[in-house]
Amino acid sequence: MSKYSIEAFVNETKENPQERDYFELEKPQLLEINLNNQSVWTKAGSMVGYVGNVKFEKQGMLSGGLGNLLKKAISGEGAKLMKAEGTGKLYVADSGKKVRILHLNNESVCVNGNDVLAHEQSIKNDITMLKSVAGMMSGGLFQVKLSGTGHIAITTHGDPLTLLVTPDAPVFTDPNATVAWSGNLSPELKTNVSFKSLIGRGSGEEFQMKFSGHGWVLIQPYEEVYSIEK
Results as ranks from 00 to 15, higher is better:
residue 6 I to K: 11
residue 8 A to D: 12
residue 9 F to M: 02
residue 9 F to N: 13
residue 13 T to G: 09
residue 16 N to G: 02
residue 18 Q to N: 14
residue 23 F to R: 11
residue 32 E to S: 14
residue 33 I to E: 01
residue 35 L to T: 03
residue 40 V to E: 01
residue 57 E to T: 14
residue 57 E to D: 14
residue 58 K to N: 14
residue 62 L to F: 15
residue 64 G to F: 09
residue 66 L to M: 14
residue 73 A to I: 05
residue 75 S to P: 05
residue 78 G to Y: 00
residue 78 G to R: 01
residue 79 A to M: 03
residue 80 K to S: 03
residue 81 L to C: 04
residue 85 E to V: 04
residue 93 A to I: 03
residue 97 K to N: 12
residue 97 K to L: 00
residue 98 K to V: 02
residue 98 K to E: 05
residue 99 V to M: 07
residue 99 V to L: 06
residue 100 R to W: 01
residue 100 R to S: 12
residue 104 L to H: 00
residue 110 C to M: 01
residue 114 N to Q: 10
residue 115 D to I: 00
residue 124 K to Q: 03
residue 124 K to N: 08
residue 127 I to M: 14
residue 134 A to M: 06
residue 135 G to L: 01
residue 136 M to F: 13
residue 142 F to V: 10
residue 145 K to E: 10
residue 145 K to N: 11
residue 146 L to F: 10
residue 149 T to N: 08
residue 150 G to A: 00
residue 154 I to H: 02
residue 157 H to I: 12
residue 163 L to P: 02
residue 164 L to R: 13
residue 168 D to L: 07
residue 170 P to Y: 13
residue 173 T to S: 07
residue 176 N to V: 07
residue 176 N to I: 08
residue 179 V to A: 08
residue 180 A to L: 07
residue 182 S to F: 13
residue 185 L to G: 08
residue 186 S to P: 02
residue 191 T to E: 09
residue 194 S to H: 08
residue 195 F to Y: 14
residue 199 I to S: 13
residue 204 G to N: 06
residue 205 E to V: 09
residue 206 E to I: 10
residue 207 F to I: 05
residue 207 F to K: 06
residue 210 K to R: 13
residue 212 S to W: 01
residue 214 H to Q: 15
residue 215 G to K: 12
residue 215 G to V: 07
residue 215 G to E: 08
residue 227 S to L: 09
residue 229 E to F: 06
